[in-house]
Nucleic acid binder design. Structure first.
Lengths: 190, 190, 190, 190
DNA sequence: AATGAATGAGGCTTCATTCAT
DNA sequence: GATGAATGAAGCCTCATTCAT
């Protein structure tokens, strides 16, 4: 594996485990089996590699949502499938997802802004999907933004309480999410 | 106002604005108009004052939920009123709520554990309330834990996207939350 | 002696002996018998303390020249006395004078600019003195700027080759300078 | 142009512009369009290439002075012509002359010694020329060393204030120097 | 000869904490 | 109780130099 990749992987694991400030550059290079200096060949600074992780993650999520947004299926199916797929990605990318969803917001002012920036795109895409559902007359509750709130809030908390903690297998989690989304959609429809 | 209170207030504002690590003890004392040494008369360490803030907040929330848990009203009314009251507290204690809900989880390993610790109590109390609803036959969806997920996730995200950002007045937010809880409860009942 | 003064004195000696880059902050504090951290209570950075030394020196020189510029003596006497006094100051402040006259120019781009900045004032003041001599008809060579060149060049080199090296006693140097200035002034007059 | 020459040229420009310490080996190779490793094929170290520049310059000056020292012209003519030729060389080799005359002295202890070493030869040669003038009875001021001080000081400062700064054309500078040397020699003679 | 990735020593700076007054 | 100067450990980053290809 190439050096840069090694650093990215170590950074991912460590940032996610110990947080941004408690992860030292020296930890990352030690974990990657490299020397301090090597880090700075590939990344300008500790901030730099962190932002790269965040960028990778948000791009992955946005790509997923875009794909689903363009599908012509029934809206409820789209929402459900997108959510389940989303959890699959989260599962594969557990550390980085944690960084993205739970560390970024709290680190400092600059990173909080970055979080809201990246997050806006995600909300927009989800909003468009939900709006389509409203336009098609599927939903009786018409406030798309608030529906997005319920959906995204639910997803976030399930990630935090189940996926991150390895409290349940991916399948068990997907089952639970399946039910959860059903409940939410039922509420929205009636 | 006494010295200790001054320090607490400054810490609250600063931790919430800049995060735990970007808030220096020197910032706190400067903001409070005191000297470095004074800080250590009242608090053992920076960690110490931070934990005190977290403790205060979680106690406030738990007190609120306990109160509602013991009420004999209709469950849906309890949930709705508790949630709205919760937002009123969040509104008053915006900085500390932010610290509790969004910074604590991401800071480091120790604080993440602390978060889950404090949070467990909250979830338990909410769980008990929801269970009562299920037992009384109000809810057709029987998975209390998952209902709590939906409710708590929703509350968290509304705090983050609206209350924290001053995107809307308290009343507007309460109206939106009112609708949101309705939608969720509808889904749970049918 | 107070801490700040101790740091200034150590810095003066060390910068002058070893140059800007070879003088480490750790050298300065070790020499002053203090800890690393203490340095940063009194100075923002290594650059900061260095600039302070330069500022002190240039102010001292300018003050001297201003004083002589306002005297109503015979111009030749003013030039001679100012020069001799100048050497007395250089003698007392040997390290810092060396820094000012010979290190500053060569360190880096920023410091070179600083040097020319500080130096301009010195040249202006000397120029005014010389111009008065020309106006009074004392000098047959009328190019004040070029006369300043000869005088300042001479002073610089005597400092470098005699004073800095402890090659001769102050008195011997002053005698030599006395003669040197005489020779220059003779050339200017005839 | 061969690789070694490329490195020398880049080093010359960069050392002169940014100073010894602010010029990184990476800057030099980047400027020369080569890789880091290549540098060490041609030079043992950064110090090594710097010393080579200094050596080249001092040899050039010494060669010039030797040539003039052996001439059988009238001494004043020798001094004047040597000085003017000297400025022509400085003009062609502006960067390296700057390094030699103004950076070397201030960099660190070792380089200061190197400067005085190289400089001694120059002073000796000039001294011999001036002594001849005294012996021939051309000069009434008999202190050759001090005459050398005036001449060398003047040359140094003109280089610094005019040539380095591109404040005037070579011809204008040569005219000024012509006058300056005249004034000095007049002072020496009478 | 040329490359450029890797090294690691060491410098500057920050900041939580202590302690004498 | 309050002060604030002093501490020193530790982190980030730079950069001259090496070496395998």
């Amino acid at each position: 594996m190439d050096t840069r990749k090694k650093l990215i992987n170590s950074a991912k694991r460590l940032f996610s485990k110990k947080g941004y400030y408690e992860t030292k550059v020296s930890d990352i290079v030690a974990d990657a089996g490299l020397s301090q200096g090597t880090f700075y060949i590939y990344f300008k600074s500790k901030e730099d590699i962190f932002k790269e992780l965040v960028k990778d993650m948000s791009e992955k999520i946005i790509r997923l949502l875009k794909e689903y947004a363009s599908k012509e299926d029934d809206i409820e199916t789209i929402i459900k499938n997108a959510t389940l797929d989303f959890f699959r990605i989260m599962y594969e990318e557990k550390p980085i997802a944690y960084i993205f969803m739970f560390q970024l917001i709290g680190i400092n002012e600059e990173f909080r802004k970055l979080y809201f920036d990246k997050n806006r795109r995600v909300r927009e895409l989800l909003n468009n999907i939900v709006k389509k559902g409203i336009e098609k007359g599927n939903f009786s509750y018409k406030n798309a933004e608030n529906i997005v709130n319920i959906l995204m809030g639910y997803v976030r908390i399930v990630y935090l309480e189940y996926l991150l903690k390895d409290k349940a297998s991916l399948d068990e989690i997907l089952n639970m999410v399946n039910e959860g989304i059903d409940v939410i959609l039922k509420g929205v429809k009636t």
